[in-house]
Simulated scan of single mutants.
Amino acid sequence: MDGKCLRGAVRADGSRAFVMTAVRHGDALTAALREIGAKTNEILEFAPLLDAADDTDLADAVVTVDALHAQKEHARYLVEDRGAHYLLSVKNNQPTLAGQLRALPWKDVPVLDRSRDRGHGREEGPRGEGLQRRRTAVPPRPPGRADPPETTPYRNEEMADRDLYAVTDLSAHQANAAEIAAWARGHWIIENTVHWTKDVTLAEDASRVRRHRTPAVMSALRDLARGALHRAGWANIASGRRAHTQPEAILALHGIPGLQS
């Protein structure tokens, strides 16, 4: 889950339109999208966004969100209300929790997973410079933690960059370090695939549509178009878009499993 500013949709009072989106890790399809009102914020729209996706069963799903949503109430909502699991990034917007995580005896915690991949989906340099190397450590859950839901700390050490911290309710027998690291990396699909495609291919940030709820409606329609082309087998959405400029080609997408007229 992540929020996005629709940069071209500047209202008469100078405020910008924002939407919040829930995206599936495996295929980058949008499960839910919700406008963030001018008098509210992402934190308050977290549960309503997932409540609106009432056809999405979150039981046993792992929900990844950025540091803004490292909130106790969000964790409780996911675990107790929806039967899901969470992986919450932690940064200095939660200074107490971030300090506790940094202070853990990481020197004594063995590295359980190592990975090497392209930073944020991009590779630089002729010999692969820019590839990110990561080492993942997950210490044992502290005993006697009474404040539900219980959390397990997680550290993702990016060798040339910085240490990233997160917490999850999953215990060691439910998820190993490699799985946790993969989910943490997979969270970037919402930026690198979804938001990037909407901005670069579908020109979302360039859109000046701004009246009423129209910016959010148009953002949802871009997600629908992106998802339809993806389900039709187009790995390159720009190519798929060019191939569907005629009405008869667009109507042919009706037969894609999961799409309705």
Rank of each mutant, 00 (worst) to 15 (best):
P148D: 09
T168S: 15
G37L: 06
G186W: 00
V109Y: 02
D60H: 13
T30D: 06
R242H: 12
T96R: 13
A22M: 05
P148Q: 09
L224Y: 10
P149F: 10
R185I: 05
A235W: 04
R114D: 10
I43Q: 07
P153T: 05
A137Y: 02
S15N: 09
D205H: 09
H230S: 15
S239Q: 13
K107H: 11
A28D: 09
L131H: 05
G26P: 01
A67I: 02
G14S: 08
N41R: 03
P105Y: 06
T30H: 03
V167Q: 06
E35F: 00
D147T: 14
H25G: 15
P126A: 05
A166Q: 01
A220Q: 01
K198L: 15
W196A: 14
H69T: 06
R34I: 14
I256D: 00
A61N: 05
G8E: 11
R208Y: 11
G99F: 01
R114Y: 08
R102C: 08
R141W: 04
I189E: 08
G233L: 10
G121S: 08
R155V: 14
H173Q: 10
R135F: 13
V10H: 00
L251K: 12
P215H: 01
R76S: 14
V167R: 01
R127P: 00
W106M: 07
A249T: 11
W183R: 03
P142Y: 01
A177F: 06
G125K: 06
A31I: 11
A228S: 12
P110K: 02
A67E: 09
D108G: 12
F46S: 08
A59L: 13
L49W: 00
G186C: 05
G37C: 03
A166G: 13
E45L: 03
R145S: 10
L259V: 05
A53C: 08
L101I: 05
W234V: 06
W183S: 07
V109L: 07
V111I: 15
D113K: 00
Q94W: 02
A38I: 13
R222V: 06
T151G: 07
W234C: 02
L224I: 12
P139G: 03
A252T: 07
R231L: 15
L101Y: 07
I189G: 15
T214K: 03
V217E: 03
V200D: 08
P149R: 04
A166V: 08
R116G: 04
A53N: 09
A67D: 11
P143C: 03
V10C: 08
A216K: 01
P105Q: 05
N156D: 15
L88W: 01
E129A: 12
S15Y: 00
A206F: 09
Q94M: 07
A166I: 07
H74C: 10
R34D: 05
